[in-house]
């Protein structure tokens, strides 16, 4: 049984969102990291890039798999977690600590379409 934090929002594609004012902090869930196995590389956008809800913004790579990351919100990337470049395994060891990008949201209303912890628990068996 994977870990799900109550205070976060989730997408159906297994990204989590922590809302901090107008900023969405985005990572992947414990379920996603365990499905992928040992992460070897995180492909991230550049600061200043714009992202759209439901669209691809990067990818996770393991030895034998690659999985796209989809943005749960729209907006502009204001920060990228550079620590993941040196140690992508942080996503495995601490999925809720290892955020991937921070996005300044252009439409906070989009948060309403995301899942709460209970709803997410139903799809992340």
């Amino acid at each position: 049984m994977s870990k799900i934090l109550d205070e976060l929002l989730y997408s159906e594609s297994h990204e989590w969102v922590k809302v901090d004012g107008n900023i969405a902090i985005i990572g992947v869930s414990d379920f996603a990291q365990s499905e992928m196995g040992d992460i070897t590389y995180v492909d991230v956008p550049a600061e200043g890039d714009s992202v759209n809800q439901g669209e691809e913004f990067g990818a996770l790579e393991s030895v034998k798999a690659s999985s796209e990351l989809y943005s749960p919100v729209s907006g502009e990337v204001v920060a990228v977690n550079s620590g993941l470049d040196a140690d992508p395994g942080l996503i495995n060891s601490d999925p809720y600590g290892a955020w991937i990008i921070k996005v300044e949201m252009s439409d906070k209303g989009e948060l309403d379409s995301l899942l709460g912890a209970a709803a997410y628990a139903e799809i992340a068996g």
Binding site: T40, Y41, A59, E61, S62, V63, K64, A65, S66, E68
Partner: peptide, 12 residues
Amino acid sequence: LQAREQHIRREK
């Protein structure tokens, strides 16, 4: 670095 390759990433 096989995650770049066709047998894993297919059309991507």
